[in-house]
Amino acid sequence: MSSFFTCLCVKAGYKKKGSDDPSVLASQTYFSVNEVEALYDLFKKLSSSIIDDGLIHKEEFQLALFRNSSKQNLFVDRVFDLFDFKHNGVIEFGEFVRSLSVFHPRAPASDKITFLFRLYDLRQTGYIEREELKDMVLALLSESDLLLSDDMIESIIDKTMMEVDTKGDGMIDLEEWKEFVAKNPSLIKPVTLPDLEDITLAFPSFVMDSNVQD
């Protein structure tokens, strides 16, 4: 019932009051009110690509990223789950904006580091375990033309654990992860989307309907 309501509200436009109000979202994120309005334009496009219900379903997310609604991918599944923090299987506008805020070029690196840690912590145990790391490497290799022998894969994982798991307990905690990223800042590059910097130019139609007071 609650998702039915959200759906109606989002569809009726986002000028409604409440937690998805652009000014509320702007105050909680790295976006300005206009940027939130521009994102609404993008959200409308994404959430109506298969079912026009004002919600982004996983198939719509996959369609946007792969031009293919049935292509599954471990990493995209994880990103979707992190965006869907209410865990109801769909991304609402509020979730969309709050999640993308981490990807803003102005968002602090510490937020990006934590986001990535949560993403890699596949089973959400608070640690990145060797097994999870291996799952990710295998998922990655299955998507690429790279053919590595089992020995090579084991070597890569051994080396990685050796470098990151400095306490040597067989799993990576947030502290170890932060230290490792500090030495290798390019690791958080995927958590920055340059497109967000000029989102008002990419989706300018909000200027006509903006509700911002003069």
Partner: peptide, 10 residues
């Protein structure tokens, strides 16, 4: 000369 898995993922 093995790559770090996280670099590969990123």
């Amino acid at each position: 000369s093995f790559i770090n898995a996280f670099k590969l993922i990123a």
